[in-house]
Simulated assay, not measured.
Amino acid sequence: MTLDVDGAVAVVTGAASGIGEALAQRLLERGATVVIGDLDASRLEQTAARLDRDHPGRVSHVAGDASDADHVAALAAAGGEVDAFFANAGVFTGFGLDATDDEWALSWDVNVRSHVLAARALVPGWIERAAAGGMGGCFVSTASAAGLLTQLGSPTYATTKHAAVGFAEWLAATYGDRGLQVVCACPMGVRTDMLSEGTTTTDADASLGMRSVVSAGEPVTALAVADAVLDAVEAGRFFALPHPEVGTMYARKAADTDHWISGMQRFRTSLGG
């Protein structure tokens, strides 16, 4: 089963800007109706207004925390019969071994637990719908190349993005033959506010992390990521890799992990880390 985007109802979190906004735009352009969510209520309202001007009547928005079960329920309710959930909200915080307990907790909540909450809310209904002969559903996880490789500088980001990939794999292995389509997006550098803020930071570990991202491959636009994601959805592929070289790196890591780690150590040293 692959999602037919045209006519589908999709929820996108973290959609006030960046990849989430781009996903919403591309979904609308391909004929979907979207519900967008974000913690930044003011910016979300502005984004919703812009999208609605171009696609009147097919955009709604609900501000809130993607890691709050009540907010996830509100997003789903606003969409009615939801066909796809794009778990896109994410945070990049906590650097080095000095990352605080609060930063670890926030990273787990937003980068991983929010995906679990969305799956709990929607997947059982999709499976029932598919068993009754209807269309199932599509769950899209915005993880990161950091979830396949690693993220220099930020243990919180590297660890939680690995967990996001792992949860997406578990969903696909458990429900992928019962009506659930799962897509996991793993981009490297993306030209978003998150990348811009990281390149101006004075924190040495945060700076290392962002310099590693922009050195490993040319950053792409958020719209390019959205295109890669929807191409994967329509093709029925699990991984969406806006940077195709990530797949090659991942294969090399699996083939000889010791050699790959040595290479990462050399890469870190070359960046002054």
Score class of each variant (00 low, 15 high):
residue 201 T to I: 08
residue 101 D to H: 07
residue 3 L to D: 04
residue 254 A to C: 11
residue 135 M to Y: 10
residue 130 A to P: 00
residue 9 V to K: 09
residue 76 A to S: 11
residue 37 G to M: 12
residue 126 W to R: 14
residue 189 G to K: 09
residue 120 R to F: 13
residue 250 Y to K: 13
residue 185 A to M: 09
residue 82 V to I: 07
residue 120 R to I: 15
residue 21 E to P: 03
residue 122 L to H: 08
residue 69 A to P: 05
residue 80 G to S: 07
residue 228 A to S: 15
residue 169 E to G: 08
residue 203 D to M: 03
residue 263 G to W: 10
residue 219 P to T: 12
residue 37 G to P: 08
residue 145 A to E: 15
residue 7 G to Y: 15
residue 249 M to E: 05
residue 41 A to M: 10
residue 143 A to G: 13
residue 135 M to L: 15
residue 3 L to V: 03
residue 34 V to Q: 09
residue 110 V to A: 09
residue 92 F to K: 06
residue 184 C to E: 08
residue 184 C to G: 05
residue 8 A to M: 04
residue 131 A to C: 01
residue 86 F to M: 15
residue 116 V to G: 04
residue 273 G to C: 03
residue 103 E to H: 09
residue 272 G to R: 12
residue 43 R to A: 14
residue 160 T to R: 03
residue 7 G to W: 15
residue 79 G to K: 04
residue 90 G to R: 01
residue 139 F to L: 10
residue 260 W to F: 15
residue 26 R to Y: 05
residue 230 L to F: 02
residue 67 S to L: 12
residue 172 A to Q: 14
residue 167 F to H: 11
residue 152 L to Y: 00
residue 175 Y to M: 12
residue 93 T to F: 00
residue 102 D to H: 09
residue 136 G to W: 04
residue 95 F to L: 04
residue 104 W to V: 02
residue 90 G to M: 03
residue 146 A to E: 05
residue 194 M to W: 06
residue 14 G to T: 00
residue 190 V to W: 08
residue 135 M to Q: 14
residue 23 L to C: 14
residue 187 P to I: 10
residue 239 F to I: 08
residue 15 A to K: 06
residue 66 A to Q: 09
residue 89 A to T: 02
residue 120 R to A: 15
residue 15 A to W: 04
residue 58 R to A: 10
residue 173 A to M: 08
residue 253 K to H: 07
residue 203 D to T: 08
residue 22 A to M: 01
residue 18 G to T: 06
residue 88 N to T: 04
residue 181 Q to W: 02
residue 45 E to V: 12
residue 41 A to P: 06
residue 164 A to T: 09
residue 195 L to Y: 03
residue 109 D to N: 15
residue 182 V to T: 14
residue 46 Q to Y: 00
residue 12 V to T: 02
residue 149 L to T: 02
residue 222 A to Y: 00
residue 196 S to K: 13
residue 132 A to F: 08
residue 36 I to D: 02
residue 148 L to V: 02
residue 239 F to G: 01
residue 243 H to K: 13
residue 186 C to F: 00
residue 208 L to R: 03
residue 103 E to Y: 07
residue 46 Q to F: 00
residue 180 L to M: 02
residue 225 V to N: 02
residue 138 C to T: 14
residue 132 A to H: 05
residue 119 A to C: 05
residue 39 L to H: 05
residue 251 A to Q: 06
residue 7 G to I: 15
residue 124 P to F: 08
residue 8 A to W: 12
residue 126 W to H: 15
residue 43 R to Y: 01
residue 118 A to M: 11
residue 226 A to V: 01
residue 196 S to M: 11
residue 86 F to V: 15
residue 69 A to L: 05
residue 152 L to N: 10
residue 232 A to H: 12
residue 149 L to N: 02
residue 108 W to T: 13
residue 188 M to Y: 13
residue 37 G to F: 13
residue 89 A to V: 01
residue 271 L to Q: 01
residue 27 L to C: 11
residue 246 V to N: 10
residue 140 V to F: 01
residue 217 G to P: 05
residue 120 R to Q: 15
residue 212 S to G: 15
residue 200 T to G: 10
residue 1 M to R: 12
residue 171 L to N: 01
residue 146 A to N: 03
residue 215 S to L: 03
residue 259 H to C: 06
residue 245 E to H: 11
residue 254 A to Y: 04
residue 25 Q to V: 12
residue 8 A to V: 09
residue 154 S to P: 02
residue 143 A to L: 12
residue 108 W to N: 09
residue 174 T to Y: 07
residue 192 T to K: 02
residue 153 G to P: 04
residue 219 P to D: 09
residue 269 T to E: 14
residue 230 L to D: 02
residue 53 R to E: 13
residue 65 D to V: 09
